Amino acid sequence: MSGEPTPPPRRPGTASGPSPAPPETVASGGMTTETISSTPPPAGRPRRRRWITVLIWIMLVPFAAWAVLRTTGWDAGFRWIQLAAFTPYVAAASVVALLLALSLRRWTAGVAGLVVMGAFAWAVLPRAFADPAPAPGGTALRVLASNLARGGADTKTIMDLVVRLKPDILTLQELTPEAAGRLEAAGIRKALPHMVGEPTPGVWGSGIYARFPLRADQAAIDYGNFRQSVAVAPEQNLQIVSVHPCAPRFDYKAACWAQGLRALPKAGAGPYRILAGDFNATLDHAIMRDLLATGYRDAADVTGRGLIPTWPQQGWEPVPGVTLDHVFADARLAIRSFGVHRVPGTDHKAVFAELEIPGTAR
């Protein structure tokens, strides 16, 4: 006999309630003891867990969709043109969804979040790291570009930048006849005596000033009445464009924005090319990456300053800053440095790049 007490037999006719939970047997010192658990697991817990999982996926899916659109370059329409400029902010926010999934041990969602964050990192982070600098040599070439905001930018600040930075080329956007007159009166032609351009009332004019002789290479690139001046410096074997396609503020402007960017000269054979100004686009727009792929490099990206916002300057627009102003340099040109400068009276910061033309240093 085992010595264990025999449970009393059940009386016939006794009402039976819910069956108790099966006993748990615990061994202790050669004897066994039965512990009866009478507390069932909470019925609502699995449901809450499902809802948490659903909410994590709801948070993650928009980031995944954004990463797919950015990576594939698919044209999702007018609103996507506007939204794509803010990709660096979305990339940073995607980390929150990933950390939430991992902290709550939703491993499938966590893996998806890692893939999404990796796609964003691949697209955005290289702009924050400088490329290896090429060996010195060649002819220095300094480029300054500024959007004057309907000619309203402070003339003294522009002239101070010209004196301090000593640009060889100055490209201006939204150059009005009045702004051109103020610059002439302030002595712009003493520093940069040569000019090609079309000062025009409103937002449509542009101009190119240079230390060396220029000639108009062709009529200004004109889509939506935005005149992007084009000039050639024969002695330097250089073609320059003051870039300013129309801003995609409204649905009907999306076409001329794309046309203005696609009409910019491609890099490659022929003269060295520089595109400088207000592109109204960032490197997160596929059309900009297509242009770079022809043989340009973005000076800010190359020098690790590609995430510095250039628009809007503080107080102009209630949106986070984005990088709309660029200096695209022919890949045959070395890029030495890049900087951004505040200019009162305009919503855009001026951009400055130091380049180098192959050849004998001066």
Rank of each mutant, 00 (worst) to 15 (best):
F226Q: 14
S2W: 09
H244C: 08
G29P: 03
G359H: 08
P358Q: 09
P9D: 12
G44A: 14
N147R: 02
P42R: 11
T323Y: 01
L264P: 02
P126V: 10
P265F: 04
A276D: 00
D75S: 10
E4P: 01
I36H: 13
L170C: 07
R79F: 13
L283V: 11
R289K: 14
V162Y: 00
V319G: 04
Y89I: 09
K266M: 05
Q259Y: 01
I52P: 00
W80E: 10
D290S: 09
P132E: 10
A92F: 10
H326N: 13
L98P: 02
E354Y: 00
L324K: 03
T108I: 15
P177G: 12
A27N: 09
D278F: 03
I221R: 01
M195A: 15
R48P: 00
P344N: 13
L183Y: 04
P234C: 10
A254L: 06
F212Q: 12
N147E: 01
R70E: 14
S229L: 02
R342F: 08
F78W: 15
W66S: 03
I357P: 02
T310V: 09
A112L: 15
G359S: 09
D131S: 13
Q236F: 05
L144T: 05
I335H: 05
R249F: 14
S229I: 05
A216N: 04
T157L: 02
R249G: 14
P201I: 11
R164K: 15
W51F: 11
A92E: 02
V162N: 07
A64Q: 06
G304E: 08
A191K: 13
S38C: 06
P358T: 12
G315H: 11
L161A: 08
L102G: 08
S103G: 14
L275I: 08
Y296N: 06
A281D: 03
E356P: 00
L175R: 02
G118P: 07
G207K: 04
H326D: 12
G3V: 08
V163P: 00
A329S: 13
L161P: 01
A149Y: 11
V196C: 07
T87M: 03
P88W: 03
P134T: 12
W122P: 00
S16C: 05
H348M: 07
D217M: 13
A145R: 00
T200K: 11
W122D: 11
T35W: 12
Q173R: 02
S229F: 01
A130Q: 05
M31E: 15
E356C: 11
L275M: 07
P12G: 10
T14F: 06
P8T: 11
G77C: 07
A220K: 03
S19Q: 14
D284E: 15
A186K: 05
Q82E: 12
V243W: 03
E235V: 04
L125E: 10
A91E: 00
L214K: 03
M195T: 10
A112P: 01
F226H: 14
R164P: 00
G306D: 06
I357Q: 03
L99R: 08
A231K: 00
S19K: 13
A329R: 06
E24P: 01
R332Y: 07
A258S: 12
I158F: 02
A76C: 06
W257Y: 12
H244M: 10
R262C: 00
S146L: 15
T294Q: 04
W204V: 09
R289A: 09
F63Q: 03
F250V: 15
T108R: 15
E174G: 04
L60H: 06
A140H: 06
A91F: 06
